[in-house]
Amino acid sequence: MNDVLTLISFGPEGWGDEIVQGVLITVSLALATLPFGLVLGFLIALAKKSDEPSLRNAANIYTTIFRGLPELLTLFLVYYGVQIGIQEGLKLVGVEAYIEVNSFAAGMVALALVFSSYASEAFLSAFRGIPQGQYEGGYALGLSHRKTMGLVILPQLVRLSLPALGNLWLILLKETSLVSVVGLSDLVRQSGIAARVTKEPFLFFGVACLIYLVLAMISSAGLSRVEAWSKRGEVRR
């Protein structure tokens, strides 16, 4: 037992500080992806509910692709695709170079693509939950289309889409683990290194799993507070 405590302790003997660094990278990757995913997802949801069929089709093709591809494959497509794309581009200019793409950035792009296509569905079903009368009410008060969106629809949209978005956030947090495969020193990779060096794989991957659980618990607690905040206008039943 003492062994175990030394192994996961901080300092030169233990692997605690390395693992904490991994946790920080995992969390920052998820947090950095979130705003891009949300904005992109919202725009795609707008396109999907538009009256213009060509715009709807374009948005549907996007979601079909990124919901159909395995996340790991999307990551590889982005990671190697961008690398090869830049190298070929440089070749055209006459520069021969080996480019290595930053795995954090590649992970962010890939995860944002996947997140946005799922988030667009969440936003779309939330849009469907807002009755037409809300728009008409806004216009009747003389609000412009933009103001109706910002002041009337968006606040309700946040409330309606929060449960689904919360789930997507938890999924995103778990999917960051995939980026360890292209070399990002996140939680899984750091515990993998610790496992290999100390020959205690069960301990370190177990610790990694528990840390993911704790992150999920913290997120759920935070999300339920945000949900309570978003429902502050509702009558208490």
Binding site: K174, E175, V181, V188, G192, A195, P201, F202, G206, Y212
Partner: peptide, 18 residues
């Protein structure tokens, strides 16, 4: 609550511990 990747590692590499 945990990533499938971590679970797979836990079982595949972790089995060696036992």
């Amino acid at each position: 609550g945990t990533p499938l990747l971590a679970q797979t590692f836990l079982i595949y590499y972790g089995a060696g511990s036992f």
